[in-house]
Design a protein around this nucleic acid. Structure first.
Lengths: 126, 126
DNA sequence: CGGCATCCGCCCGGATACTG
DNA sequence: CAGTATCCGGGCGGATGCCG
């Protein structure tokens, strides 16, 4: 059986479903934060440290979106100094395997892609 | 063994590898075009029809990028009227399985995500 | 038929500064 | 510590028009 039937999952509804997920994970940071939270429950500051290069603003925004979509839980502890912890929900954890599939593909093929890209550039822009 | 080791694939180099691939497939159309081309060799016009809502400009740009990255081959036939055909390369085809993993996740979880999102909105914006 | 060129609005994301 | 507020530049992507 050809792959054609399978790709109907992607093309299915005109791409609305696949784009729904792409809209969620395709920003610059989401997948990185989800992968980091796979270690377990983490505080805001810990995430800020462990995700290199992210700004406070983007960390906050991304976490809010993840919470909104039910992929991450946010628990505020009534203490001073304040302590806020983030953790993956069941839905959030379920994103890990397909994300790993993508990461695996990336690790395997990105070098070849980069090479092809460089070759293309030198062909068109001598 | 925990999932922690696995997620190192994503977090690995500070997210550079995973972002390299996200930069490629996370635009609005790439994955849809790749999935459509999985049917086999297609002409520009056919793609234009089969990918609903895409503009000529975006189809051209996306195909160029895919060609540049070695995921799609472009063959021009010296005829009148001109005929240009696009097809997936081996690398391009290899993207299908992980893409399907993502699509499967989307189909399974997007309804729940939408629900969570709606609930969140009604909670914060009465 | 299969493009490329141009203009333009929008939103993502970075930098910075300020609060409870 | 964990945010919120504001400003701002760049690029994505839509619409339109012209070309070989």
């Amino acid at each position: 059986m050809s792959d054609y039937e399978h790709t109907c999952m992607i093309r299915g509804d005109g791409g609305r479903t696949i784009r729904a997920i792409l809209d969620r994970i395709c920003n610059k940071w989401t997948l990185l934060i989800v992968a980091t939270l796979d270690q377990g429950r983490l505080r805001f500051g810990d995430l800020h440290q462990q995700v290199p290069g992210i700004s406070q603003r983007m960390l906050t925004l991304t976490l809010r979106n993840l919470e909104r979509d039910g992929l991450v839980s946010r628990t505020v502890h009534a203490e001073v100094p304040p302590r806020v912890e983030y953790a993956l929900t069941a839905t959030g954890k379920s994103l890990i395997p397909p994300a790993l599939a993508l990461a695996g593909w990336a690790i395997e093929h990105v070098p070849h892609i980069e090479a092809s890209r460089t070759a293309y550039e030198s062909r068109t822009a001598p």
